[in-house]
Design a protein around this nucleic acid. Structure first.
Lengths: 249, 249
DNA sequence: CCATGTATGTAGGATGCCCTACAGACCATC
DNA sequence: GATGGTCTGTAGGGCATCCTACATACATGG
């Protein structure tokens, strides 16, 4: 990729100091001056499957801006049971507390689908933010939208059954990784959906019989996206709609 | 309370242009200059029980800063079923999207316990924020903390039973209204907890038999706060802890 | 005091889900 | 092709909760 000049970098053409291209939408959307301030702190990282970026309850060390792949924000209870609160793809970042001067988060951040991206030390990010109002706004805005989506998840978790929640997860995931085949096991789906593995297998079996999905060991393929959307609960449409409020893409 | 200097305004001494005293903690925590900018837009309002401040899915007209009482943020599904995503007392405000330049929210805001407070038109708030960085920071920070609490609620909704969720709701509510008696019906509790009324009555009956609470028509009294805390799920402690991160009070 | 509306008590059946357990299938490695 | 590890299929018991229905108690206004 070429570098057109010292100030102006067009969308899709930004790189970090290592020359790695940026496709995270937040990093692409901010002003040139804000990006220049942040750029020296962006460290390219690969995000392999199941890597834990942050343990729930601890101090945040880095904020992550994914280029590709998918990160899950998970609440883990003491007894080991878990439930997913949110998903982060290339439209967002992890470590929302860092964007408002806080440094701890109760959420575990786990790579759910292999990808790559950039990380920034929380301290460096916070310093940068003081003179990068546009970045500050975009991060805060993302945090708020994510909060609304989490709220919808809270209600969905309470009011909707496993099959519907599985459908929603598949749709939201596919929105963030443009592939019809999602590399994920039933076991991990159970972690996300806050249930046990047999319940996932059962629900997935039903969807497969309906010819909405197909799956093999470790991968779920979406074969009829449209019908899948039709059978999703309203929660999917709502979260998607508020994602659009971000004005990215 | 004494006034220590020209910059610092001590808690409990601020008023709006109508002379109404402020006890909302955000409004008390911001700098003098930021408060002066916002002050002309603060309209005193009483917040009677069950008043709907905002319907889910619509445009936000006002942001509300409660002095007393309690506001619930509720997700309402098309079929009429509901679940609460968050609580707002005098430590917070409603309308987090307005703090980042957005104007719509999927959440319904309902007064759950009578109180009073101030409201600001969304447009006026957003204009004010442009030159009120401290206020901007506090609002964003509150939005993020609220998001983390909502995430815990999402997991709690999935993983914990009605009785535990009821305990948590009672504790969180009492934290925001300093009274041992909470004016609330089982029916409204059902709306909050995303279940039906008989299930609430059953769970409340169990707690009453354990002598943790007492209730009569339309009111729940907490008679043994400590034991109630002991029987709460870990979710309560976590949300409370992150509320502390706000640095208010 | 009565009538009406609202709040709570309670019960029984249906259901969805969790839990445990085990069997079968696939995969990688040697 | 054998072996151990991981993933999925499936079943049955148990349980919480949902749903419906109705009874009872309280409150308010006439």
């Amino acid at each position: 990729m070429e570098n057109k000049g010292l100030q102006v970098v067009q969308s899709g053409e930004r790189t970090n100091t290592e020359g790695k291209p940026v496709s995270n939408l937040i990093l692409l959307s901010i002003s040139d001056s804000d990006y220049s301030s942040l750029r020296p702190h962006l460290e390219y990282v690969s995000l392999p499957n199941h890597l834990v970026l942050h343990e729930g309850g601890g101090k945040l060390e880095f904020a992550y801006f994914p280029n590709r792949g998918l990160i899950s924000l998970v609440v883990a209870m003491k007894d080991g049971r878990t439930a997913e609160a949110g998903l982060v793809g290339n439209e967002g970042f992890t470590g929302t507390p860092a964007s408002v001067g806080l440094s701890r988060s109760p959420l575990q951040a786990v790579v759910q689908i292999t990808g790559d991206g950039f990380r920034v030390e929380v301290g460096a990010l916070q310093e940068t933010l003081e003179s990068a109002p546009h970045l500050q706004l975009m991060l805060s805005r993302y945090a708020v939208v994510q909060g609304m989506q989490v709220a919808q998840t809270a209600a969905c978790n309470r009011l909707h059954g496993i099959e519907q929640r599985l459908v929603r997860w598949l749709l939201m995931t596919q929105d963030r990784v443009d592939s019809e085949s999602l590399p994920i096991t039933h076991d991990f789906l159970a972690t996300m959906l806050g249930t046990d593995r047999p319940s996932v297998s059962l629900a997935a079996g039903v969807l497969q019989k309906k010819k909405l999905i197909e799956y093999t060991r470790g991968a779920v393929k979406i074969v009829n996206r449209k019908k899948l959307e039709d059978s999703a609960c309203e929660c999917y449409g709502i979260t998607q709609q508020y994602n659009g409020e971000l004005g990215l893409k």
